[in-house]
């Protein structure tokens, strides 16, 4: 059943990501920003802050608070999406906020708010993972103290085999979808969701695959930041 030669709908290998490109610093008015293209996903993340908290009663005296908004553009889906925040978007906003929160050293910014705005310009499966990657790149670009970058990637089961990076088609027709986010250097998982059924062995295999995917994305995030900040002369200052 789980032969490696079963073709995926997209023609990818079981441990192959979609094409990913990340660019840091795309929005002038934001303190930090990133644009990610994750397969057909096109997602923009902008970070503002640390800044004053509004409304004031939300302020916490010894650390920062994080506000996150995940929003899909009306034209991001096949049929027009109503532009107001849906139940799903509010949930994903919360999930993303909790996924990036462990990476941020919030005690360094008491009485402030860090705002993360995520706009989905075009959506495919796995947009929450792509959004987390963009958000954490934007946070680093904003110069916020972080313990590590947050990388996210999904694994799942489609067509009877465990696969990396489940896309929209596989999500709809497949058996399971498991998005995870992690701090790669610290080996900590900050987001874990599982939709569907997996056996114990399949679960272990999927988790392993997702971690490999996260590490690949981590390298891409790192490249995007290096590209913006150190591009002209890598290593000239060393020695």
């Amino acid at each position: 059943m789980s032969e490696n030669n079963i073709e995926r709908i997209s023609g990818r290998a079981t441990d192959e990501l979609r094409n990913v490109s990340i660019k840091a610093g795309v929005i002038k008015n934001a303190d930090g920003s990133a644009l990610i293209e994750f397969g057909k996903n096109k997602i923009m993340a902008a970070v503002f802050g640390p800044k004053e908290v509004h409304p004031k009663h939300m302020m916490v005296s010894d650390r920062a608070i994080i506000k996150c908004r995940y929003h899909m553009m009306p034209f991001s889906t096949d049929t027009r999406k109503r532009p107001n925040l849906s139940r799903r978007e509010i949930e994903i906003s919360k999930v993303i906020r909790e996924a990036v929160q462990p990476a941020i050293i919030m005690e360094n910014y008491p009485r402030t708010a860090i705002e993360i705005y995520i706009e989905i310009l075009q959506s495919d499966g796995g947009s929450r993972c792509a959004a987390i990657n963009a958000a954490s790149t934007a946070l680093a670009d904003a110069g916020i103290n972080m313990r590590d970058l947050v990388s996210a990637c999904a694994a799942g089961k489609a067509n009877g085999q465990v696969v990396l990076d489940v896309d929209d088609q596989e999500d709809k027709t497949g058996e399971a979808d498991m998005p995870i986010a992690m701090l790669p250097n610290m080996d900590l998982i900050t987001l874990f969701q599982l939709d569907g059924n997996l056996s114990k062995e399949e679960f272990d295999q999927a988790l392993e695959l997702a971690k490999i995917g996260c590490n690949k994305l981590y390298n891409l995030q790192k490249d995007a930041l290096s590209e913006k900040y150190f591009n002209e002369n890598n290593g000239k200052e060393e020695e």
């Binding site: 103290n145 250097n185 610290m186 930041l225 290096s226 060393e238």
Partner: peptide
């Protein structure tokens, strides 16, 4: 000197942490 991004291990061993490191 070297270029770093958040999460990069700068050095291992008994060193004193100063600003912007943990």
């Amino acid at each position: 000197r070297k270029y770093v991004i958040p999460g990069d291990v700068i050095i291992q061993g008994d060193h004193k942490p100063s600003t912007n490191v943990i």
